Computed example of a mutant assay.
Amino acid sequence: MTDLTNVFPRKHRPGRGASSAQTGRFEKLARVTEPDGWDTPEEVSVLRTEVSLERPRSVINYVRSPDLPFDRSLNPYRGCEHGCIYCFARPSHAWLGLSPGLDFETRLIARPEAPDVLRQELRARKYSVAPLAIGTNTDPYQPIEQRHGIMRACLQVLSDCGHPVAITTKGTLIERDIDILAPMAARGLVRVGISITTLDPVLSRRMEPRAPAPRRRFEMIRRLTAAGIPVRLMVSPVVPALTDPELEAILTEGQAAGADAASWIMLRLPLEVAPLWRAWLDEHYPDRAARVMARLREMHGGKDYDPSWHHRMRGEGHYAQIIAQRFDLTVRRLGLDVRTEPLRRDLFRRPESKGDQMELF
């Protein structure tokens, strides 16, 4: 069994992935909730989503990881209400003094000035254009985007200046922005990745509690591709002994929905994610917990996770090789192994602002 402090009863955390507000790795003191005898269990309220605002000084994050296909990213939000228990971005909340557990999915941070800061950064003389990845840490189309609209505003900035962008999401709100995305796609400026982990709605609801159901995500692929927006199906993450039997079926349905490419990533458990994941397994699938963890440790040299470059995404060993072979055979059969065209960079023009020479004409 996994021992985590500050575990919340299930009835007080409906629609949440994590079971505890586990203290982040940088905190000297642990935060533990204890009953004081004044409240009855029925009087304890359920966890609600709280949103704080941040004024960023910069929004383009330059990435030096040699095993990633992009060198810069942008995050309109910190934390993610989708609450996917496996999310490798959870440890980023520890940098804010917050819990990678329940805080990551309930105490969110919006960056409403991100579009203006993005415009300023793109105007810099030293800026050299390359595809900007959005959604690689937290989902830009999570539920709070409906109210804040930060992603749409950032997308408009990129569209106006002809900047290429690659978007990763599970959120159906992306369909709202087809009016911007479709013209960008026609100019070769955008690709979208939709991640689907399982076809089982019960497993999905437990593992990704506030993300759209799997069938709804396939419908997203249909609507985006019908508008001419290229979509990559991302089977991510593959969970040993839990979702891996569905690999071929997910790829087949994704291709039928219109995806023109596919990729996969093995389950990753960096830092605080490992104990949160083990606690989730113990709660929801205790009969499979030992098998799941044995497979993961087999791929990471006996550890829950090995973050080494070029290893962390797939693992190694017999089981990892089998998954890779199954994926390769299926994408070849479905025609999803075609190399996609690179996004265009030649259309980029630095954003204009008041006082620019062009305004004289």
Score class of each variant (00 low, 15 high):
M1R: 14
T5S: 00
N6W: 00
N6V: 00
R10Y: 01
Q22N: 05
T23E: 03
R25W: 12
E27D: 13
E27K: 11
R31F: 00
R31C: 00
D39L: 09
P41I: 00
V46K: 14
T49H: 01
L53Q: 08
P56H: 10
V59C: 05
V59M: 04
I60Q: 10
I60K: 10
I60S: 09
V63K: 08
N75G: 04
P76R: 04
R78F: 07
E81S: 15
H82F: 15
F88L: 09
S92E: 13
S92P: 01
S92D: 12
W95I: 03
P100V: 04
E105I: 08
R107W: 01
R107C: 03
I109E: 03
E113R: 13
P115Q: 13
R119C: 05
R119Q: 13
L122T: 10
R125C: 07
K126N: 15
S128Q: 14
A130P: 02
A130M: 06
L132T: 06
A133Q: 13
Y141N: 01
Q142V: 04
I144K: 04
R147T: 10
R147I: 02
A153W: 03
Q156R: 15
V157W: 10
S159K: 12
D160C: 07
C161T: 09
P164S: 12
V165W: 01
A166C: 09
I167T: 01
T168L: 14
T172G: 15
L173G: 12
L173R: 12
E175D: 12
E175C: 08
R176E: 12
D177H: 10
I178E: 04
I180K: 12
V190D: 02
V192Q: 08
V202C: 11
E208N: 10
P209T: 09
A211C: 09
P212K: 03
R215C: 07
R217N: 00
I221F: 06
I221M: 11
T225W: 07
G228A: 03
G228S: 02
G228D: 03
V231E: 01
R232C: 10
S236C: 06
S236G: 01
S236I: 02
P237R: 04
P240R: 08
L242N: 11
D244R: 13
E248R: 15
T252D: 14
G258I: 03
A261G: 08
I265V: 11
M266K: 09
R268Y: 02
L269H: 09
P270L: 04
L271Y: 11
L276W: 10
W277K: 09
R278T: 00
R278N: 06
A279S: 15
L281S: 05
E283N: 05
Y285V: 04
Y285E: 14
P286Y: 09
P286V: 07
A290D: 15
A290H: 13
M293R: 14
M293G: 07
A294V: 07
R295G: 04
R295S: 14
M299G: 02
H300I: 11
H300T: 09
Y305G: 01
H311V: 13
M313F: 12
R314C: 01
G315V: 02
G317C: 07
A320D: 12
R326D: 08
F327Q: 04
L329N: 15
L329T: 14
T330P: 01
T340K: 05
E341A: 14
L343G: 05
R345K: 15
R345Q: 15
R345F: 00
L347R: 14
L347F: 10
L347S: 13
R350K: 15
P351T: 06
S353L: 11
K354T: 09
D356G: 14
